[in-house]
Nucleic acid binder design. Structure first.
Length: 187
DNA sequence: CCCTGATTCGC
DNA sequence: GCGAATCAGG
């Protein structure tokens, strides 16, 4: 990818809006956060107003789904304050083809593995809260449960802390590894 | 460990 | 000019 005028403008815009370099890199696609930072410096627009210096890092947020037998506790603890899109329709991984580096490949692999075995389109599942991470913001420890239409701008991943043996957080692991027929509408 | 931006320096 | 590697820090 090369820095076209459009991409540079978007970079400036997002940077001034306070997004972190990695977030910008994720939106631009095809570049690393280092590339973004390097570009920012070359453009001499580093010192941005007065924002972000430290990543918010999830506060204390939720204590994932309770291990109780009856999944009743639901999205009530909306911490971190702000746009919690509880009530977001969930979809299976399907085909997440946003080719953006090795990270993309890994994500596709993870989601595919699961979808082949147990994942099926869950029509109305309520997601407590997500960190709304984009593809490049995922790491090995973030929940990779996809949310929204893969082709939509709104598409993102759960992003909560994932278990060591699962690519999903405690909450989504239960959905992913549960036969569709036995799933209950969590609400 | 996660993430942040800053800097260096070979290409 | 570009960006990976590295550094310093929360």
């Amino acid at each position: 990818m090369n820095w076209t005028d459009e991409r540079v403008e978007l970079l400036k815009k997002l940077w001034n809006e306070g997004l972190s370099a990695s977030q910008i890199a994720a939106q631009l696609g095809g570049v690393s956060r280092n590339a973004v930072i390097g570009k920012v410096h070359r453009l001499k627009l580093s010192g941005r107003g007065k924002t972000t210096t430290t990543a918010p890092r999830s506060k204390k947020v939720n204590t994932a789904a309770p291990a109780a037998s009856r999944p009743s506790t639901q999205a009530s603890n909306n911490v971190g304050g702000s746009q919690s899109h509880a009530n977001t329709t969930v979809r299976p991984a399907a085909t997440v083809t946003k080719t953006v580096g090795s990270a993309a490949l890994q994500v596709e692999y993870e989601t595919d593995t699961v979808s082949e075995t147990v994942m099926k389109p869950a029509s109305d599942v309520v997601v407590p809260i997500s960190r709304r991470l984009s593809l490049l913001q995922l790491s090995e420890r973030t929940c990779k449960w996809p949310i929204g239409d893969p082709l939509s701008e709104e598409f993102h991943f759960c992003g909560h802390e994932s278990g060591e043996s699962s690519p999903y957080c405690a909450y989504h692991s239960k959905l992913a590894f549960q036969p569709t027929s036995e799933r209950r509408r969590v609400r």
